[in-house]
């Protein structure tokens, strides 16, 4: 987070946002602490660490995994997650033969409660335009070279369903405790652009 107040390198949309903020504060439509609350919420409490806990649980508990795949929103209920955007969470499982990857081509829909706010590249035109047309090439460019026989399933979040990928558990991590597994699970693996 920048604390730079010189403004010399801020783009015009940043200046306009600051002007709008001062206007809404003055009109009493924006609470003075609202911006800090958003920053704290989405950097400390809502983020991919929550999805990682869910994946780790699924790797350790076969009954939970079956529930998660059958009804994601119900299965994550006990985690009491804030952040929204998971009215209907669909969890899709990677296997040796199938690799899943998630996008929103029309805007930038993303399962906030389990993965936090999306990374910039997920919202940018390059990813949104190309992943539905040449997913194997895009994944390879992003560092994930899939074997030619692996079938890719792309999920374009065009309604209010939200998707999260359940990665395959690496063989060398079998038997590790859940907390240690969770620390190894990356955001990108749960979007489907990494393993």
């Amino acid at each position: 987070m920048s604390t730079d107040h010189t403004h010399h390198h801020l783009p015009p949309q940043a200046l306009r946002a600051e002007a709008l903020e001062s206007l809404l504060l003055e009109k009493g439509l924006l609470d003075a602490g609202a911006v800090d609350s958003v920053i704290i919420r989405y950097t400390e409490r809502v983020g991919p660490m929550n999805g990682a806990k869910i994946v780790a649980r699924a790797w350790c508990d076969p009954a939970f995994k079956q529930w998660l795949l059958a009804d994601g929103s119900a299965a994550i209920g006990e985690f009491n997650l804030e952040g929204g955007q998971v009215e209907k969470l669909v969890v899709v499982e990677n296997t040796a033969a199938i690799h899943n990857v998630v996008v929103c081509t029309l805007c930038s829909c993303y399962p906030w409660a389990v993965l936090g706010l999306p990374p910039t590249w997920y919202k940018d035109p390059a990813y949104r335009s190309r992943i539905v047309r040449e997913p194997r090439t895009v994944l390879a460019e992003m560092g994930l070279a899939l074997a030619p026989e692996v079938h890719i399933k792309v999920w374009d979040s065009s309604a209010e369903l939200r998707y999260m990928v359940l990665p395959q558990q690496p063989a060398e991590t079998l038997g590790l405790p859940e907390a240690e597994l969770a620390a190894r699970i990356s955001r990108d693996a749960m979007i489907g652009v990494a393993l």
Partner: peptide
């Protein structure tokens, strides 16, 4: 990478 790169991004979210 940071969730918000600059404060104004979080301000837009809050607004």
């Amino acid at each position: 990478a940071p969730v918000f790169h600059k404060r104004w991004e979080a301000a837009v979210f809050a607004m």
